[in-house]
Design a protein around this nucleic acid. Structure first.
Length: 584
RNA sequence: GGUCUGGUAGUUCAGUUGGUUAGAAUAUCGGCCUGUCACGCCGAGGGUCGCGAGUUCGAGUCUCGUCCAGACCGCCA
């Protein structure tokens, strides 16, 4: 027998018992006469004592090294020196028998809460990093969340159904990962970017309410919150309107908040149209943990011969409270920030509302104190506040201002990390203009239905058509989203046409779905949520890598197993493939 | 594809205008130590300064190239 207890559970009530523990050597403290060894497993750490009354055993203990796997038998006793920092700190185990189950080489970094290892090294030895409590606890949280998702959806009659991983490449959306087919030479499978079409087919099959916690794959460049393979909570419902779906998944979110974070949301989540989100926050995923709403100054700044504003399509600003005392250096830093290519603004105009009620701005040449007072009043600004103004093309300026808003919130420490601000962003546009391809692309995906009242505009101005699409946003993170699907073949055909598919292309890519629609497709819609992001949000982490057991780096490499890798000539031949460029 | 930051002991880092034998902490190893829990004290070993060119009397330090890692832009319905 390897163990009667785990290393985290022994307490006062176990005193006097003889126990068997197995685990890893965390730390050895050799005091000469006696030796303490901390033994660790997934559940915790217990202290072992070796007394030199048993010289043999004591000598053996001193030969142990970090991360040796050992089994001990001993007696639980009360500590004379208790350690209140450890859950097992009231007791210790006097060892009677010690077995080394496996030795360990010296690990390349310390397996402790504050490890001395850098990211790169810890990635290479991920299996060792996962022994650390701070990493391990993320995976445990992930398990709990997945479990609660299943509980909630099961209670609501959802059925978990698996869909294929080897599917077909489609032109819309992200780049596909492809898999060559040996039996069908020259042909390729693709890995799913999401189980989108399959879940719609399941609705046609009558499965009413489907879900799946499933891997999705997208071959695009990565970020801290993007992995080439990631996990979605994928859901679909039949006979459901947008309202039904929002309520169902708001319920899921509240269930997770309550059962995982112990946070109760009694009120309905805020709902904001996409247009308002852009207008007031310059983002389709606004962080509402703080306000700092935009004010549109386009009208009131015009007509003073300040060319930049007069010619701008849009002039908007935020009000940074109590920042009128900003120095020239600080304002220059903000100007540099907005002028970075990533933000893209051309310049920044400021107005200081001084404590004495006067105004000082970078455009004093063009505007009087009364003019500037009007601007400040548009914000209900107080003396001591600072207005930061951007101007230019409407959409780009809104986006830049959105980034400035986040930057100011960070500088001013306005973001409360213990607060959760969820909202639904609704009424997304159906299409997005793609300048490169000179055509519309689906903002969500090609099966998203347009708003009933906007259908007429499909022919006249598709860019203004709103979709029955929605995103769940929490703290500025897009946690998930979905849409009501098109279940009418005519509308679907029109959609394909607007997206630039020929009839033939649509048939060859999605013919199976169009066919299925002919046999009685129920009205349906759904949503998908990014499990990785949700777990990261709940654990307070910026990067989703820390909530994935074996993540890939920013070049899509797994530095532990060293993938991707080349394959043998035999494999290539079998697959009928030829590599034309040697890997560098 | 682009921009930026970094790469020095097992590890995390410092290293001045370019100038003697490249340091600290920690880890490791040895010695001492019976109540430690970041144990303590004494001592030791440990370096292709990512790699390759170049400038120079002399390069960890400057220049160019290259590789690796990270953040971001493009991209990601």
């Amino acid at each position: 027998m390897y163990r009667t207890h785990n290393c985290g559970e022994l307490r006062n009530e176990n005193i006097g018992q003889t126990v068997v523990l197995s685990g890893w050597v965390q730390k050895i403290r050799n005091l000469g006469g006696m030796t303490f060894v901390d033994i660790r497993d997934r559940y915790g750490i217990s202290q072992l004592v070796f007394d030199d009354k048993n010289q043999n055993l004591c000598d053996k203990a001193r030969e142990l090294g970090r991360e040796y796997v050992i089994k001990i038998q001993g007696k639980v006793i009360e500590r004379s020196n208790k350690n209140s920092k450890m859950p097992t700190g009231d007791i210790e185990i006097i060892v009677e028998e010690l077995t080394v189950l496996n030795k360990s080489e010296i690990p390349p970094f310390t397996i402790e809460e504050n490890t001395d290892g850098g990211d790169e090294l810890r990635m290479k030895y991920r299996y060792l990093d996962l022994r650390r409590d701070s990493v391990k606890k993320n995976l445990i949280l992930r398990h709990k969340m997945a479990h609660e998702v299943r509980n909630y959806l099961d209670e609501n009659n959802f059925i978990e159904i698996e869909t294929p991983i080897l599917i077909k490449s489609t032109p819309e959306g992200a780049r596909d990962f492809v898999v060559p087919s040996r039996m069908n030479k020259g042909e390729f499978y693709a890995l799913p970017q999401s189980p989108q079409v399959f879940k719609q087919l399941l609705m046609i099959s009558g499965f009413d309410r489907y879900y799946q916690i499933v891997k999705c794959f997208r071959d695009e460049d990565l970020r801290a919150d993007r992995q080439p393979e990631f996990t979605q909570i994928d859901c679909e419902m039949s006979f459901a309107e947008q309202e039904d779906i929002l309520n169902m998944f708001e319920g899921l979110a509240k269930h997770l908040f309550k059962n995982i974070k112990g946070v109760d949301f009694n009120d309905e989540f805020l709902r904001m149209t996409w247009a308002d989100a852009m207008k007031y926050y310059g983002s389709d995923k606004p962080d509402l943990r703080f306000e700092m709403k935009f004010v549109d100054l386009s009208e009131i700044v015009k007509g003073n011969n300040f060319k930049i504003f007069d010619e701008a399509e849009y002039v908007g600003a935020i009000c940074a409270e109590s920042c009128a005392s900003y120095s020239r250096k600080q304002l220059d830093a903000l100007t540099d920030f907005v002028r970075r290519p990533q933000v893209g603004a051309k310049g920044l105009v400021y107005v200081k509302y001084n404590e004495d009620g006067t105004f000082k701005s970078s455009v004093d040449k063009f505007y009087s104190q009364e003019d500037l007072k009007k601007w400040a009043d548009a914000f209900s600004a107080k003396p001591g506040d600072l207005l930061l103004i951007l101007s230019g093309n409407r959409n780009e300026t809104l986006t830049s201002l959105g980034q400035l808003r986040l930057e100011m919130a960070n500088r001013l420490n306005l973001i409360n990390n213990n607060k959760f601000a969820p909202l639904w962003v609704v009424d997304f546009p159906l299409f997005e203009w793609n300048e490169e391809a000179k055509r519309y692309t689906a903002m969500h995906h090609p099966f998203t239905s347009p708003k009933e009242e906007d259908i007429d505009m499909l022919d006249t101005n598709p860019g203004d058509v709103r979709a029955n699409a929605y995103d769940l946003v929490i703290n500025g993170v897009e946690i998930g989203g979905g849409s009501i699907r098109i279940h009418d073949n005519d509308v679907q055909q029109k959609m394909f046409k607007l997206l630039g598919f020929s009839k033939e292309a649509a048939d060859s890519q999605f013919g199976f779905l169009m066919n299925a629609f002919k046999y009685g497709a129920p009205p349906h819609g759904g949503a998908a949520f990014g499990l990785d992001r949700w777990v990261a949000l709940f654990s307070g982490l910026e990067s989703i890598r820390d909530v994935i057991a074996f993540p890939k780096n920013n070049a899509g490499r797994d530095v532990m197993i060293d993938s991707p890798s080349i394959i043998s000539d035999e494999q290539l031949k079998e697959l009928n493939l030829k590599v034309t460029k040697e890997p560098s």
